[in-house]
Each structure stands twice: as C-alpha cells, then as structure tokens.
Design a protein around this nucleic acid. Structure first.
Length: 353
DNA sequence: AAAACGGGGGT
DNA sequence: ACCCCAGTTTT
C-alpha cells in the first residue's frame, strides 16, 4: 500500500501532460496504446495527433484504405501494428457497432492487443484492476523488490505479472498503472535513476543492496545479420518508375519499394547487370549509375541492410509503371523515404558509376 | 521457447 | 557499439 500510494502521489505532482490523458474514450486510448508499443512517448506523440485528426472515430479509421493507414504510420516502425490496427477498427466498427469490449478478457481477443494493452485499456477506460507490465514496470518492480529473475524469461514474465497484479487495487487502477509507467520513464530510469530524491528509497531493496545498476536482469540474445540490398530505381523518359508493394513475410510487409535485388555481398554495376532479376527487368539501352557513393547501412534491431540505389534510365518500361510525381502517395520505409528526399535534392550530375 | 518485427534516442 | 522504448505475433 505504501508503494501504491506513493506512486499515485508522485504521479499527481510529476505526471506528463499528454493528449490521451484528457479522455477515457476506448478508441483514443486503444490508438495511443498500440502506437506506444515498444515506442517512446516522444516518438509516438505526433502520430497520435495525426491519427486523431485524420480519423476522429473508429468508423473513420475503419473506412480508410489500408495504404492510407500505412502512409500515416510511415516512420513509426513495426508496421504489423498498423495493419492490425486497421483490421481491428473494421472489426469494432462493423461487428461491434463501434463499441470496444469493456473488459480485459474481451479486449485481449482483439488483434494487436496483448496482455499489456488489454490491461491498459481496461484499467484506464473501465476502472478494471488489471496490472500493466511494460518495460518501465519490470524495472521499477525488479528494483524495489530486488528481483533478479530475467524479465524476458518465461518464468520472469509470469512472476512479474503476478506480482504486479497482486499490487494493484480497486481504487484508481488506471491512474496507478500510468503512475508506475511514468515513474519508470522519468524517475526510475534505466541509467542514472534519481535514487537520491526517490519517494520509494526507504523501502527499495536494490538501493539498500546497491544493486540498482544491475536490475532488471535481461537475457540478451539478438544477433544482427547483414543483408545486401540493391534497389533498382528505373526512370523512363516520361518520368515513370517501378514501385510496388512488398508482399509475403518479413520486414516492411505492405509497404512499397523499388524493384529489389538482394545479394549475398556487395556488388558492382557489372555484377548487377548479370543478375537474372535485372535482365528480366531492364532493356539493353539502359544507362546505369550508382546514386550513393558510400553504401547506406540501414540499421534495424535484427539486421543491418547494406544498401545501394541504382538509378537506371531507360526509354521504356516493361512492368506496371507509376508516375514519379505520385510516388509520395505510397507508404514506404524510412530507408526509401530518405532516398527519395536525397534524390529530389540532388542534381543528377552527382551520380557515381 | 525463441525469433521476428522499425526506428530513434541515450550512453 | 549496445541498450532501451507504454509489446505482439509467428515460428
């Protein structure tokens, strides 16, 4: 109870003024929670404003084209969130008359809504005492209670959820959930937490045992792969190009891109023109130049994409072309978005063979 | 149980 | 470089 009350009191003084805290509307809370999954508040905030303006209600979102949703989501990452968001909006609008489920259990069934998000919406919108466990909660609980079970182990996930659930009260569960998350984000930070002015210091096990910097424990296991991307930027005399949707599994599903030739290592122009995919795409009269002198290393969590943009000028095109002037309407990755920006600002003289 | 899934910011 | 972020889904 000390823990619970202290966090709520801290929150009443120090909470962040955020737009989704002005409402209990499940639509807006849901929208904000999906956007903030694995995403910093500062990064998600402008997207929340864009989305609520473009889609004031769940019906507006449901009636949008998926590509329109992805375009607004562009740059936020984890694009399956946007596709699931749209799917769930259509489900709620069409099957549930626009009314979101009003319980943790019901919310959990929605696509893109897991344990954290169901708890957040249920507690904030419906005052259900369902405890959220996000990265902040893991950190605050592991330190305050001195728990060194790895937070990303099966056992740790179960243990911390049970502990969090045992703490939450019937009284103001939504406010408490937001309090412990804000406290983790602003006060009990990963590096340099403010222990010398902490309202929980008197009972914090990690502080007492000088283990603050060691907690929480996390098993690290990500291994980064290198991949070699060659984007073929075909440009015809009448300013059209090839730009199509990325199908199948893997990164950037549903986003648009130039024809992509992936190789096992970095290649030259001479090697590029020998690639089967290139031959089938490009006529013999093509003029090929390399746009970026240095390889672009686009860094994702699990892979580094070593990328070359090949500008290929041709008289005519084989596949389905789009007008270059309309390319910005399509949702695309930050990697390609950055290229388009650079390309527009660069004279074609600066190309490298 | 582990891997995949983005991008940005802090140290 | 490495870690972390209002996690969820797929393999």
């Amino acid at each position: 109870m000390f823990f619970y009350k202290t966090l709520i009191n801290w929150y009443l003084k120090k909470n962040r003024d955020l737009p989704w805290r002005k409402t209990k509307s499940p639509y807006e809370i849901w929208l904000s929670e999906i956007m903030l999954q694995q995403t910093r508040v500062a990064q998600g905030l402008p997207y929340f404003l864009k989305f609520t303006e473009a889609f004031p209600t769940v019906f507006d979102l449901a009636n949008a084209e998926e590509s329109e949703v992805l375009k607004l989501w562009q740059g936020l990452g984890y694009y399956s969130r946007a596709r699931n968001l749209h799917f769930t909006a259509k489900y709620v609008a069409n099957e549930l008359n626009g009314v979101f489920p009003n319980s943790y259990k019901g919310l959990l069934k929605l696509k893109g809504v897991g344990d954290y998000t169901a708890s957040a919406i249920a507690s904030i919108c419906f005052d259900e005492p369902a405890a959220v466990v996000d990265g902040n909660v893991y950190r605050v609980l592991s330190r305050f209670y001195g728990i060194d079970t790895p937070i990303n182990s099966t056992e740790g996930i179960k243990q911390f959820k049970e502990l969090a659930q045992s703490i939450i009260q019937e009284e103001e569960p939504g406010r408490y959930n937001q309090a412990i998350m804000d406290f983790g984000a602003l006060h009990c930070k990963p590096k340099s937490p403010l222990c010398n002015e902490c309202p929980l210091a008197s009972n914090c096990v990690a502080l007492e045992q000088e283990k603050v910097s060691e907690l929480p424990v996390k098993i690290k296991k990500i291994k980064v792969k290198k991949r070699y991307f060659n984007y073929v930027v075909v440009i015809t005399e009448d300013e059209t190009t090839l730009f199509s949707e990325r199908k199948g599994k893997g990164i950037w599903q549903g986003l648009y891109q130039f024809p992509l030739i992936e190789t096992t290592e970095s290649i030259s122009a001479n090697e590029l023109v020998k690639q089967e995919e290139f031959v089938s795409l490009i006529p013999n009269d093509a003029a090929i130049s390399l746009f970026n002198k240095d390889e672009i290393i686009h860094k994702l969590s699990h892979q580094h994409l070593v990328t070359k943009f090949w500008v290929v000028r041709v008289s005519q095109i084989k596949g389905d072309a789009i007008k270059w002037s309309e390319i910005e309407q399509f949702p695309t990755s930050v990697l390609i978005s950055n290229f388009l920006k650079d390309y527009t600002n660069t004279n074609s003289q600066n190309l490298y063979i």
